[in-house]
Amino acid sequence: MNEALAVTPERTDSKLRGLRFSKGHGTGNDFVLVADPSGVHTIDAGQVATLCDRHRGIGGDGLIRAVPSRFLPEGQELLATSPDAEWFMDYRNGDGSLSEMCGNGVRVFVHFLIAEGLVDLPAGGSLNIGTRGGVKTVVRTGDDYAVDMGPWEFIFPGEAAAKAMDSLVSADGLEVPRPALSVSMGNPHTVVALAELSELEATRLFTAPDVDPVPANGTNVEFVVPADPLVHDGVGTATMRVHERGVGETLSCGTGACAAAVAIRHWAGTAAPDAWNINVPGGVVGVKFFPGPDGREHVELSGPAVIVAGGTLS
């Protein structure tokens, strides 16, 4: 890890001076990470936006505060049923808005906890993490991490079951609105299938796509191109770009990759596989479906996590 001397983002509150941070990413989805084992650092939406600014701050798709679950109301609620979920991933998008969950972020979060000496997790070991999307179990698999993302569900289940599509999405670069399917992975996603990689490349995601109807709390929008052939050696493959709610286009989105696999498998029918590789601009993540302990189908997300730098706020 490269140790920076100091970073002085504009308008950062004096209470944050001296606060140590790290910078990490999972397949290019990058985060500012702060350890707060005593639960004393309140970082508001404006400060998050400043710290995540790529020109005037550190830069990142979001900010993750590592804080014991007992210091947050959401964490205390989770501890009532999952007392081993000691650490809570307090995650905000790059614009400062709260987010329920981030699949790439939770892998980087656990890697950060290990690097900071806050947890000891050997290869093959698992750790339960509190998030606003519920408790997530993370397994260390050598240099990578696999996360039980929990059950998936359709946001508009009646429409999805009847038509396999439930909304229309308009985006810059697409000549006409495209049908889409909305999937919840603890946070909302709307998945659009495109026919060609050239069409995917031509789609411009500088501004948020228009989704009709839009889920109640907004949505992340994934544009996907299934591979041809779709399945090779029992594994499905697709290529994806994403516009994340409150962030913009990112190099990767873990929950979005899971939602994309849900949608493509649904469209492909009963013969579709349970294992998928999703290509994103920042690399490749793996997605698997398996029966969960609650009797529902769960989704596992796997991929790398990297800490690239650290420093101190001045």
Rank of each mutant, 00 (worst) to 15 (best):
P304S: 13
D120T: 14
K15T: 00
R11L: 12
L181R: 04
I114F: 01
R245H: 11
V284G: 05
D172F: 09
T207I: 06
R20N: 13
M185Y: 07
E3L: 14
D30H: 02
N187A: 06
H266Y: 15
S126A: 14
A85G: 13
V169I: 14
T12H: 00
G59I: 00
A180I: 05
A115C: 04
H25W: 03
V7F: 04
G256C: 08
A161H: 12
E77C: 06
E153S: 15
D212N: 13
A160S: 15
Y91C: 04
A80M: 06
H55I: 06
P157C: 11
C258P: 13
W276S: 11
D274I: 08
W276F: 14
D61Q: 05
L5C: 03
K15F: 00
G28D: 11
A115E: 15
A85W: 13
D120Y: 03
V176P: 00
L194W: 05
R241A: 10
K136R: 13
G60R: 01
L98P: 00
F289R: 09
L181M: 13
L127K: 02
P293S: 14
N187H: 08
L16E: 00
S97F: 00
I307R: 01
V110E: 04
P37Q: 11
D233P: 02
D212F: 04
G248H: 09
N279F: 10
L51F: 01
S22P: 00
S82E: 09
D30Q: 05
G282L: 07
F154E: 07
Q76R: 15
D143P: 08
R140I: 11
W152H: 14
C258F: 09
L230C: 06
S167Y: 00
R241P: 02
G282W: 08
D274W: 07
A180C: 11
A80K: 12
E100I: 03
V108R: 03
L301Q: 08
V135I: 07
T81F: 05
T203S: 01
A171S: 14
W276D: 10
V40N: 00
P179D: 12
N220Q: 08
H41A: 00
A305D: 09
V242D: 08
E86P: 00
A272W: 02
D212C: 03
G158H: 13
P293C: 04
R107F: 03
L205Y: 08
E249W: 08
T131H: 02
P281Q: 09
S167I: 02
T141H: 04
D294R: 07
V287A: 11
V169F: 05
G150K: 10
T42W: 00
P281N: 09
H232A: 12
L197H: 06
T27C: 15
C102T: 12
T255S: 15
S182K: 02
I155E: 13
T207R: 13
G62M: 01
A271R: 04
